[in-house]
């Protein structure tokens, strides 16, 4: 899917994660992460975000993730919301959503 604009989803409250997606000019996704548990879960959190992007065929996103200790299900949901806002897609690709 094509990123049309910079979009944000999620909050900065405890147990949530704020995901910002913008377009980059590379041909890969980049993830910037800030989290109080970064030293423990950096790889795991980035993997969840990356998988979600790939499921939606996003290949040129800059993702900024400000985590406040979110669970995987929250990370996926927030990433998906940000993707749909950034691509301005109205129909939902249910196959990509577990």
């Amino acid at each position: 899917m094509k990123i049309n604009k910079e979009a944000i989803a999620g909050t900065l409250e405890s147990s949530d994660i704020q995901i910002t997606i913008s377009k980059n000019h590379l041909i890969k996704n980049t993830i910037y992460l800030e989290s109080p548990v970064k030293h423990l879960y950096e790889v795991a959190i980035k993997k969840v975000i990356m998988n979600t992007l790939e499921k939606h065929q996003i290949t040129n996103a800059n993702v900024k993730a400000i985590d406040q200790g979110a669970l995987d299900c929250t990370i996926i949901a927030r990433t998906q919301s940000a993707i749909y806002r950034a691509t301005e897609k109205k129909e939902i690709n249910w196959e990509a959503i577990d």
Binding site: T11, L12, E13, S14, Q18
Partner: peptide, 8 residues
């Protein structure tokens, strides 16, 4: 956090 999220 709540306030800044909301403003953003």
């Amino acid at each position: 956090n709540e306030m800044v999220s909301y403003l953003m």
